[in-house]
Nucleic acid binder design. Structure first.
Lengths: 104, 104
DNA sequence: TTTATTAATCGTAAAATTACGATTAATAAA
DNA sequence: TTTATTAATCGTAATTTTACGATTAATAAA
């Protein structure tokens, strides 16, 4: 009956950001690669430039990444502070202990 | 250009399941509570019975929970095996190390 | 200055999500 | 058997997401 907690809402925001394989792929790319130029990301994905741009926008909206315009190109990278918040919340959820054996 | 990996796709499936505060709340409830009767879950959420049922269906579809019909009621609980798979994939993603300092 | 490159945004269509009330099917209780 | 309870499903409307091509704005290169 009560409303959701901030924590629950924020977990949902981060989870939603990772709720599409393209965005998961982008995040992994940014974690691994030396470069984070938008064009390179587009090349790695089976999607058009505009669609990739949209996914980048969503990740940016959730706070997980940030973009830095460098001339004609844009350099993306993980926002470490926000990423660690997400890590804390998500791993926190998954590290909760089961209070009882399954009832089902 | 290539397609997504199974891993990326599966991470997205689990993340999508957690991409709504109501479903995060349900999962937390099932992790904490002694009881997991559908009616009790409905009472805890600011949503109608049918909407909660829909969210339960989505969580079940992602594999994270299972339901056991017990007479007129239905008892829900976390699917531990699947939950641990999700835990492994998600915490795996978040434990990836940064290969370089931020470029932005 | 003109041309090319890069990435964001616009416009749009199709599909998916979210929410609800109403109905249904199944079991339990009277 | 009749009535009540529970939860799934149906039907539906509103919103959001996803995807693309086309256009735009900005910078770089010729």
């Amino acid at each position: 009956m009560a409303d959701y907690s901030n924590k629950e809402a924020q977990i949902a925001v981060y989870a939603k950001a990772l709720a599409h394989p393209a965005r998961v792929a982008i995040i992994q790319l940014l974690l691994k690669k030396q470069t984070c130029i938008c064009g390179a990301i587009v090349e790695e994905l089976p999607l058009s430039q505009s669609t990739v741009s949209q996914h980048l926008k969503e990740l940016k909206l959730a706070g997980l990444i940030k973009g830095d315009i460098a001339g004609v190109k844009t350099c993306y990278c993980i926002d470490k502070v926000e990423w660690n918040k997400a890590k804390k919340l998500l791993t926190g959820l998954f590290s909760m202990t089961f209070k009882k054996e399954n009832c089902c």
